[in-house]
Simulated assay, not measured.
Amino acid sequence: MENEIFTPLLEQFMTSPLVTWVKTFGPLAAGNGTNLDEYVALVDGVFLNQVMLQINPKLESQRVNKKVNNDASLRMHNLSILVRQIKFYYQETLQQLIMMSLPNVLIIGKNPFSEQGTEEVKKLLLLLLGCAVQCQKKEEFIERIQGLDFDTKAAVAAHIQEVTHNQENVFDLQWMEVTDMSQEDIEPLLKNMALHLKRLIDERDEHSEGGKD
């Protein structure tokens, strides 16, 4: 069964820097599972919701299904809770807007072993990483990253840049409160906003045209 489902793509994904990083929060599949067991533990959303709770202990408790048993609807339920919590944390606590498309829980839920599925899980881990390195316990979480091997640490640092310094992925709202920004600082921000606005309008029009068919 494992050989049929667990492709080299998934094997590679389980050794990627983001998966290595998220394991610093605790062992996947109780620490004694195969790569397949660990991947299933990742996509089922139970472990990742626990990670989010470590990042934000003030989270309102929402019922996560502990036993998914390869049920796509239960998996999507767990992941939907997680995505909502992540979006809320960026917006309300970090004062940031997630500009990149949110992880597609439908794809992960129904096709977790596909290439698309792993891409969406990667997005989920990336956004979780952004929460971890900006939360109140960031020193503790960054210290864990420092304990990783050099190459992994460097790759995780590059991922951190993606969600903390790239306004196309995550847009910082706090600049609006700054009154002494120079023209040089304001111009790229306004350009970014205009590009995002155009993208949103294009997407809106595309959906409305699709709805007419």
Rank of each mutant, 00 (worst) to 15 (best):
M1N: 11
E4P: 00
T7C: 11
L9V: 01
F13L: 15
F13W: 13
M14T: 05
P17V: 03
P17Y: 00
L18S: 08
V22L: 06
K23R: 10
P27R: 01
A29H: 04
A30D: 12
N32M: 04
N32D: 15
N32I: 08
G33E: 01
L36N: 06
Y39V: 09
V40P: 01
V43N: 02
D44Q: 05
V46N: 13
F47K: 09
N49H: 04
Q50N: 11
V51N: 09
I55E: 06
I55D: 10
I55C: 00
I55Y: 00
N56R: 07
R63L: 04
R63T: 14
R63E: 15
N69T: 12
A72G: 01
A72M: 08
L74E: 14
Q85C: 07
I86F: 09
Y89K: 08
E92Q: 12
Q96M: 03
I98S: 03
M100V: 11
P103H: 13
N104Y: 10
V105P: 04
L106E: 15
I107L: 12
P112M: 15
Q116H: 11
G117C: 13
T118C: 13
T118N: 08
E120Q: 14
K122Y: 10
K123M: 12
L124R: 08
L125M: 04
L127I: 12
A132H: 05
V133H: 10
Q134C: 00
Q136L: 12
K137M: 10
K138N: 07
E139S: 11
E140M: 09
E143Y: 13
R144P: 07
Q146P: 02
Q146G: 02
G147Y: 06
G147S: 12
L148V: 04
T152H: 00
K153N: 11
A154I: 05
A155N: 14
V156I: 11
A157W: 01
H159M: 14
I160M: 13
Q161G: 15
E162R: 07
E162Y: 07
T164P: 02
T164I: 14
N166S: 08
N169T: 08
F171H: 05
L173A: 00
L173F: 02
E177N: 10
T179Y: 01
D180R: 04
Q183D: 14
L195M: 09
L195A: 15
L195V: 05
L197N: 07
L200C: 04
E203F: 11
R204E: 06
R204K: 06
H207A: 06
S208F: 13
G210W: 10
